[in-house]
Design a protein around this nucleic acid. Structure first.
Lengths: 349, 349
DNA sequence: GCGTCCAGTGGAAGCGCTTTCATTCACGCG
DNA sequence: CGCGTGAATGAAAGCGCTTCCACTGGACGC
């Protein structure tokens, strides 16, 4: 049982917050003028503007967001929807950097970020109810799986939204940013082929995420083109532990493998470790390529050659797409922005 | 350059959302009765209640949160403040589980979670401005460092809040939950002492976080009591990589060490790996104890003996403390709840 | 010199809701 | 039968803000 310790309440109420009326009175103008002065100062004389500004700072005035949003019909906050609140999401550098990018971008426009974690099921209903209720101006959705119908619902709601990563359904109805995972998978694999690898395996992502599937497809296409066997596939869950396990299975299946294309840096890091344990020298015995290039690759040994996703830019762009839809109130539009991945060569391949 | 693809807008505006007036009209009652029916149904006849409920579901009515909060002076959303938006925060299982616990707890009360990431500096001003502006009903703060004055500011704002982890300053003015890290550090160390270890090192947390310092102090106190040298201290940053580095330094400084107390499971996991590389057998050559017991310990090899923090309960309790303060509007009160840690024995010690 | 224009301003409406207050009505009791 | 009681209800008063609209007065064109 926890110890509880409860001193007497102080109850030093700060008094009521100042209202626009008080600001106007103090500045010697009408409430209308004060309002205009505060919102950009259009159609306000320099004198009045200065007076209002002075009053605002003297009173420590902050507009009441509820009152404002009641009339403007905007809430100045957007939701970040994460339909999958495992630790996995948070330990995934990809997600973390997306979150930070989104947050940074929103901050520049003084928008707030409402975090919506929801497992499928009952929570999803709650989520949809919330999204439908004018609580927020729009939504950014990340890390969605095959079986979630979020995109359908959002499209039906006609709520401005932007997906990070191509949605499974309604991809033609909602806006999204993505990278060309097919091209990325191809680039990684081609690097190994050109390097002379012949027995190239892949540690693919989960089969229910678009990114995983596309990268795998890129690998497969390249292997076929090069006339190589495309049987060496093991799936991981994008984590380091998953990568280790997959690498072990691969080594067992094909002791002669000389290349590994991993669908995430974390999985590649796991593979590096397993390869080292098995006494293989990277990249001489086995060349390894990761995916994402955020945080992880510099810290592995050897440093990981990887496919770079411009995560920051993607997050920024997603926010931009969202804001565009919010601003033109012609409603949601299925704009789409695909970023090209790029190969970053380090030491593992 | 990204490819951009912009089909023509569909512009299928859903029309205006229904208002309480329409619900009332349809149900054949006054707006006042409709409102009462929706908010708990007190003082409303069963007939009227049923009529309103029917109207609500036929119309798909959702109350406008802005209008509601304008009059109730509540926003039904609370902020989760993270003054340190490194990847570190997110990759730390402690933080992730706190987030999930808080989220779950808030969901039961239909409260929304506004995520506020803020690095010290300019962003902190923005943060404080936001917190001061009736945007949210209260705040939960996690992972605060020595030099951030958040607690002071929040206390001054007299905004209901609850810290997860004892704040550095104003600890007597704000509510917080914490675990007894001193006791935890002691318990971990005592276990090793009783086991017969004599050359016990510690991988401490960062020197600017209360949890890190207290756990170190617990280790130190126990070492002294046992008449053992307390010189074997290396600091890590709570991450696996940090733990590896610290473990290497320790092995170099004291090749004869036979016990390691780590201030986090992640760091302990790093240490396990380094020890294995160095050919030490855990727990026979070196016994290792971690800290937190969330997610990590079962996956290491050998399974990690650790000090368990009741993270879920702490998060719950933090929310409870917060809600208590929000509900009694006597204002913030410095309630404090300290959870006892407990030892979880597995295989590493 | 007169009409025109426009920047600057304030009055007032109203966003959608909760809540007070007065009113109504049915009921039970002395 | 009169009256107090209490449950159910609706009218109306805002909550704090933005914005439409009407108005003013000075600058300006003719």
């Amino acid at each position: 049982m926890p110890r509880v310790n409860r001193p007497p309440s102080d109850s030093s109420g700060q008094g009521a917050a100042p209202t626009l009326d008080e600001v106007a009175a103090r500045a010697g103008v009408s409430r209308a003028t004060a309002s205009r002065a505060i919102n950009g100062g259009n159609r306000v004389s320099p004198t009045a503007l200065a007076a209002v500004e002075a009053a605002v700072s003297e009173l420590g005035y902050t507009p009441n967001p509820a009152a404002r949003s009641l009339v403007t019909r905007r809430t100045d906050s957007v939701a970040l929807v994460v339909p999958e609140p495992d630790e996995r999401v948070f330990s995934d550098p990809f997600f973390v950097h997306t979150l930070r990018g989104v947050n940074r971008m929103l901050a520049t426009r003084d928008l707030q970020l409402v975090l919506l974690l929801a497992r499928p099921g009952e929570e999803e209903r709650r989520l949809l109810r919330y999204l439908g209720s004018r609580h927020i101006d729009g939504a950014i959705v990340v890390s969605h799986h095959r079986n979630d119908r979020l995109a359908d619902h959002l499209a039906a709601l006609s709520l401005p939204c932007a997906f990070v990563g191509r949605p499974w359904t309604s991809a033609d109805k909602v806006a999204y940013v993505d990278t060309d995972n097919l091209a990325g998978g191809r680039a990684a694999t081609e690097l190994l082929v050109e390097r002379g690898c012949r027995r190239i395996a892949t540690i693919a992502g989960p089969g229910d995420m678009a990114a995983g599937i596309d990268r795998l497809e890129g690998w497969r296409a390249t292997m076929r083109t090069a006339g190589l066997a495309d049987d060496l596939v093991e799936h991981g869950d994008f984590t380091e532990v998953g990568g280790e396990a997959a690498a072990r299975r691969l080594l067992e299946r094909a002791p002669d493998l000389d290349g590994v294309v991993a669908a995430s840096d974390l999985m590649a890091a796991g593979a590096l470790r397993v390869l080292a344990e098995a006494g293989r020298v990277v990249p001489d015995d086995v060349a390894v390529v990761g995916y994402d290039d955020v945080g992880v690759p510099e810290r592995t040994s050897p440093a990981l050659t990887t496919v770079r996703n411009p995560i920051g830019e993607m997050a920024e762009q997603a926010v931009r797409l969202l804001l565009e839809q919010i601003d033109d109130q012609r409603g949601p539009r299925p704009i789409r922005v695909i970023f090209p991945p790029s190969l970053v060569r380090r030491d593992s391949a």
